[in-house]
Design a protein around this nucleic acid. Structure first.
Lengths: 248, 248
DNA sequence: CGCTTACATTGATCTTTATCAAGGCAGGCC
DNA sequence: GGCCTGCCTTGATAAAGATCAATGTAAGCG
């Protein structure tokens, strides 16, 4: 199939617009198809935000700070739509965890044309909000959690997004290296490794080879993640909300 | 002026829809007006995401983790639109830094009705992206920056969003306490205080009373913030992008 | 105007995680 | 199948920031 054809198919599957529609043609005109091989890094136009549609594979989006420091800001898998910030405080680059294929769009132009379709705008808005909520959880993890909590939370999050391929229940195959996990969690590779070892010694997880992790007990793992406790347990605890405003 | 009238005026000013329009009426029907006094905390419906329009004042949005830990996820000032996540991994609450007024909407219903207006959807999408980009910068700060860098970056960011009221150039009046700064930066109040003292001793900033800070030298402050270095300096440095894909 | 109180600063010590340095092991390749 | 390379694990030490404790000070109020 031709590249533009593939793009229109993806647009159709994601937004539900017929791939023969004029809008589909207009949008696919803006697409730059890119393949990113495993380990290969790609940078988009630094002057303007880009929109990326990942059709297949897995990628990481990282931000670069001074002194060569990297912070992975998000992982993406096939079907994901995500935006890449224009040059702000940090440069952002995309790197393939596996061989991946994506379409890149200039965000502004895409929005200009997509504005005609409430359905597309709605989808984009919802995906953007999901990314924002994920990023806020990440901020809590990075700002307030211990190494143990971060690693446990990471494994739980990946278990949700990745499906365990074989018959073994609770087994996930991490597509990223320990280094990537560390760069996502604001930890060093050594600290990640030590935490995994300790979780293994506690019988909560197990490892199969280098990249497979078996989650024996999701409840115990969640208890290690340090997320907020159930509502009623909070009542007398923190100086939380003095008032609950029910919207709707 | 009546409350619904105020809401429609705000909708008009923000989205450019005439305040007499039917859509304006429909949207303002969904609004719950709330005033949050300084220090008062409000929680929205935990079952669904909310949309907040801050008409005046200043608020913080914080996430709660286990063991009473708080992470401030964003500060908001008059005119800001922001969304409050539904119950996910962490509870989110709004607290007034000053006496503040806002309108709360059930996000889903708001989007359903706003979908009719490309202009509103476009604005919402853009604000959401801005929030996301800010949050990503925050993630880099929390995950990869030293205390010094975080504090310097915070002051720069606030200098951009706050206007210095009096004639003194570079003077900003922080509406939040040291505790809030710490909870935003993932640091303790003591560490924040020490960093401010050191920046003061270096002659880069000065303090006027408890809440006013004079930024003498923005360049020096930016140098302390550890953001990404200028493009050309990077060329031989990090294993950054091997390929630059120019979109558009 | 002085008292009061909450907030901010400063100092001493401790904990966590980073850093530095060796090994060990899995998986790819000849 | 054995070698080889790169990734992972483990150990020892160091540094950054947290914690604990005390003092200082700005701003609000009687």
């Amino acid at each position: 199939m031709s590249r533009p054809g593939a793009c229109r198919l993806f647009l159709s599957a994601t937004f539900g617009i017929p791939s023969g529609a004029e809008l589909s043609r207009q949008l696919s005109e803006l697409a730059t198809p890119v393949t990113v091989m495993r380990g290969e890094t790609v940078e988009t136009d630094p002057a303007a935000a880009s929109l990326a549609f990942l059709t297949g594979g897995a990628t990481k989006l990282s931000a670069l700070a001074a002194r060569g420091r990297h912070q992975i800001v998000a992982f993406h898998f096939g079907g994901d739509i995500f935006s890449i910030p224009a040059e702000g405080l940090h440069r952002h680059v995309i790197t393939g965890l596996r061989d991946s294929a994506l379409f890149l769009f200039p965000a502004r132009a895409f929005y200009d044309r997509a504005a005609a379709s409430p359905r597309i705008m709605r989808t984009l808005l919802e995906r953007s909000q999901t990314a924002l909520f994920r990023c806020r959880d990440k901020a809590v993890n990075l700002g307030r959690k211990t190494a143990r909590e971060r690693v446990a939370g990471f494994l739980l999050g990946m278990a949700e997004r990745l499906d365990c391929p074989d018959d073994e229940p609770g087994c996930i195959k991490l597509p990223m290296s320990r280094r990537d996990v560390g760069e996502s969690l604001g930890l060093t590779i050594e600290t990640v490794s030590r935490q995994i070892t300790e979780l293994k010694e506690a019988g909560i997880i197990d490892t199969r080879g280098r990249s497979c992790i078996v989650l024996h007990n999701l409840d115990q793992l969640a208890a290690q993640a340090g997320n907020v406790e159930p509502r009623d347990a909070m009542s007398g605890l923190a100086p939380a909300a003095q008032r609950v405003v029910m919207v709707h």
